[in-house]
């Protein structure tokens, strides 16, 4: 394919470096953070601490994978924290109060998550409520349901494999199981993005909804699938969280949605849809978890974590829109 172009002009070969800028940006920030921590607090690099960072990141990898797909398809899901809480509470009640087998209860959690996603998808596509408003509302509904079901209780001490999923380790007690789950889910995401119609159509729907429709793509059905996958991911995240704490209550996971969306955006996925990368999300997730951890280790007050996360999100998005202007010839 080295034939020269007939009508050249706007075409430029993008160097590899530029193609992967969306990953290199956050990676550079990870390095910078590493240098800072090496100077101020070498304990940051202890294996136990790195494990804590990755364990925290693992949940957001699971959520980030599905959120990357949702956002690529020009959607957004603000209800995922409540879905995680609701599915975890349902699972916990079935195990603790109803003595249902643990695997059955976990399956039920997934079904609840997928069901919540289906509800979101149908509200958005059939009632034509904008994604943001729809999931903002169902966030309240799902949270309310979780509160009602749990009735203020903290449910704890769950049978295996729930604790293992949340904080177990394999290979001589070295590698945390949640990290394996998180990475595996992201790899599935890479596969979906690159090798399935679901991923391809998400890019088309988010990039140009009308073109997608004119190509015969069932836009609504695909959007519903995105939210169902998001629901399943939120349920899995809920199980992981329950396992990590070996306890659950209805108020858990409140920050999931914003943290996940932030990680996805920091990773270079465009908030308006049409473009994204799973690997970018991986890097974004790790960066945000590192920042949170670094500030804890430095004994900074909680609000500094918020400030730092906010600054990172702003810096990334400003960086991407700078690249965008330059990439398109800078003519705006």
């Amino acid at each position: 394919m080295s034939v020269p172009m007939v009508a050249a002009g706007r075409e430029r070969k993008q160097p590899v470096f530029e193609r992967y800028l969306n990953i290199l940006g956050p990676l550079a920030m990870i390095l910078a953070l590493g240098v800072i921590m090496a100077i101020f607090e070498p304990r940051f690099f202890r294996i136990t601490n790195i494990r804590i960072i990755l364990q925290d990141a693992a949940i957001y990898m699971v959520l980030g994978m599905a959120m990357t797909l949702v956002i690529t398809g020009a959607g957004i899901d603000l209800s995922i924290g409540s879905i995680s809480a609701l599915s975890a509470i349902v699972m916990a009640i079935f195990i603790k109060d109803l003595n249902v087998a643990v695997y059955v209860a976990m399956l039920l959690a997934l079904i609840v998550g997928i069901g919540c996603g289906l509800v979101n998808g149908l509200i958005i596509t059939l009632l034509r409520v904008p994604d943001l408003i729809a999931t903002l509302s169902t966030d309240l509904v799902f949270r309310g349901l979780a509160l009602v079901l749990a009735a203020g209780a903290v449910l704890q001490r769950f049978p295996e494999p729930i604790p293992a999923i949340g904080r177990g380790r394999i290979l001589n007690d070295t590698i945390p199981i949640p990290i394996i789950i998180g990475v595996a889910v992201l790899l599935v995401g890479v596969f979906i993005y690159r090798y399935t119609p679901l991923g391809r159509y998400a890019i088309a729907i988010g990039g140009n909804r009308e073109s997608a429709m004119l190509a015969g793509i069932n836009v609504r059905r695909n959007k519903v699938y995105h939210y169902m996958l998001m629901g399943a991911a939120a349920a899995l995240a809920g199980i992981m969280l329950t396992g990590r704490l070996n306890a659950v209550q209805a108020t858990v996971a409140e920050g999931f949605a914003l943290h996940t969306i932030a990680a996805v955006v920091v990773g270079g996925t465009v908030l308006f849809g049409g473009r994204g990368t799973m690997m970018g999300t991986l890097v974004g997730v790790i960066l945000l978890s590192m920042v949170t951890n670094a500030l804890v280790i430095l004994r900074m007050a909680f609000f500094w974590q918020l400030v730092a996360s906010g600054v990172i999100i702003l810096a990334s998005v400003a960086f991407y829109s700078y690249l965008e202007r330059r990439g398109k010839g800078g003519s705006e």
């Binding site: 119609p197 391809r200 088309a204 990039g207 073109s211 997608a212 793509i217």
Partner: peptide
């Protein structure tokens, strides 16, 4: 049909657009 506005997706490659919906 080849529609008047072409109905392409900007952030897909040419082959991805050619086969969009008929992969």
């Amino acid at each position: 049909a080849v529609y008047q506005n072409l109905a392409l997706v900007d952030y897909l490659t040419a082959p991805e657009n050619v086969y969009l919906g008929n992969e």
